[in-house]
Amino acid sequence: MVKGWHGWFGTFNGVVLITVIVLPLAVLAVWALARRRRAAGTTSAWRTSLADVGIVYGTIPWVWMIMLPGDQAGAVPGRVTVVPLRDLFTIFSDGGPLTATVQVVGNLLVFAALGFFAPLRFPALASVPRVLALAAGCSVLVETAQYVLRLDRVSSVDDVLLNAAGAGLAALASRRWWRDTPDTPTDRRPQPAPAAGC
């Protein structure tokens, strides 16, 4: 029974399967939130609901996977690399192009959903530098947790850079929708100057 639970919650394949299985629940959550917000008179209820669920559904599985312990978790001390790009060069030289590509793409996707949906949901984050800062901060927290919990993983500055870059690229992909972010107060928008003599 323990092995069965570990197969679901303690492996990459298990996390992927769970993510696929709960997709209908995520869709249902978007619908339920949107319906409740529309009933309350919230503008753009569908969009805000999709953003809320998208941030959670698109981020938690990736963070879950990178927090899975290695084979020697708890038995070996945490490892840290702070020299930018060193790990990337090592992966490309030792692991080969395929392994390196999978690693890089995976790191780019960790906070991509956050980068895509956060500016749409929160007007204060409708800026690529702010999204980069948010993703970098979240990534530093994850890398620190890997080190403190001794998960037999390398806490690398390259992971932080890739995680932030993925969020920034995703933010750029959603930038065309930032201007009509529903939570932007209308009274803060520039008002035309009154006509002379009125």
Score class of each variant (00 low, 15 high):
residue 13 N to P: 02
residue 14 G to V: 03
residue 14 G to L: 01
residue 14 G to C: 03
residue 15 V to A: 14
residue 15 V to R: 00
residue 15 V to P: 01
residue 15 V to K: 00
residue 15 V to Q: 03
residue 16 V to C: 09
residue 16 V to D: 04
residue 16 V to G: 02
residue 17 L to A: 13
residue 17 L to W: 05
residue 18 I to Q: 02
residue 18 I to W: 02
residue 18 I to L: 12
residue 18 I to A: 03
residue 19 T to Q: 02
residue 19 T to H: 04
residue 20 V to Y: 08
residue 20 V to C: 10
residue 20 V to M: 13
residue 20 V to F: 12
residue 21 I to N: 05
residue 21 I to G: 05
residue 21 I to C: 13
residue 21 I to V: 15
residue 22 V to N: 02
residue 23 L to H: 06
residue 23 L to T: 06
residue 23 L to E: 02
residue 23 L to R: 03
residue 24 P to S: 08
residue 24 P to L: 08
residue 25 L to G: 10
residue 25 L to S: 11
residue 25 L to Y: 07
residue 26 A to C: 12
residue 27 V to C: 03
residue 27 V to W: 03
residue 28 L to M: 08
residue 29 A to Y: 00
residue 29 A to N: 01
residue 30 V to S: 00
residue 30 V to R: 00
residue 31 W to D: 01
residue 31 W to V: 05
residue 32 A to G: 12
residue 33 L to A: 07
residue 33 L to F: 11
residue 33 L to T: 08
residue 34 A to K: 01
residue 35 R to L: 13
residue 35 R to E: 13
residue 36 R to I: 09
residue 36 R to K: 14
residue 36 R to C: 09
residue 36 R to A: 14
residue 37 R to M: 10
residue 38 R to Y: 04
residue 38 R to D: 06
residue 38 R to N: 06
residue 39 A to C: 11
residue 39 A to I: 11
residue 39 A to Y: 12
residue 40 A to D: 13
residue 41 G to E: 10
residue 41 G to M: 10
residue 41 G to V: 11
residue 43 T to C: 07
residue 44 S to G: 15
residue 45 A to E: 09
residue 45 A to W: 11
residue 46 W to H: 05
residue 46 W to F: 13
residue 47 R to D: 01
residue 47 R to M: 03
residue 48 T to I: 15
residue 48 T to E: 12
residue 50 L to R: 00
residue 50 L to H: 00
residue 51 A to I: 04
residue 51 A to P: 07
residue 52 D to S: 09
residue 52 D to Q: 08
residue 52 D to I: 14
residue 53 V to Q: 01
residue 53 V to P: 02
residue 53 V to E: 01
residue 54 G to D: 04
residue 55 I to C: 07
residue 56 V to M: 11
residue 56 V to G: 02
residue 57 Y to P: 01
residue 57 Y to I: 02
residue 58 G to D: 05
residue 58 G to E: 04
residue 59 T to K: 11
residue 59 T to V: 10
residue 59 T to W: 08
residue 60 I to K: 07
residue 60 I to C: 06
residue 60 I to S: 02
residue 61 P to C: 05
residue 61 P to A: 07
residue 62 W to S: 08
residue 62 W to V: 05
residue 62 W to L: 09
residue 62 W to D: 01
residue 63 V to C: 04
residue 63 V to M: 07
residue 63 V to R: 02
residue 63 V to H: 03
residue 65 M to H: 10
residue 65 M to I: 09
residue 65 M to A: 14
residue 66 I to V: 14
residue 66 I to Y: 08
residue 66 I to D: 10
residue 66 I to A: 07
residue 68 L to K: 06
residue 68 L to W: 08
residue 69 P to R: 11
residue 69 P to A: 13
residue 69 P to K: 10
residue 69 P to F: 12
residue 70 G to K: 06
residue 70 G to W: 04
residue 71 D to G: 06
residue 71 D to P: 09
residue 72 Q to L: 15
residue 73 A to C: 13
residue 73 A to R: 10
residue 74 G to H: 14
residue 74 G to L: 12
residue 75 A to L: 14
residue 75 A to K: 15
residue 75 A to Y: 13
residue 76 V to L: 14
residue 77 P to F: 15
residue 78 G to R: 15
residue 78 G to E: 15
residue 78 G to Y: 15
residue 79 R to Y: 10
residue 79 R to M: 13
residue 79 R to H: 12
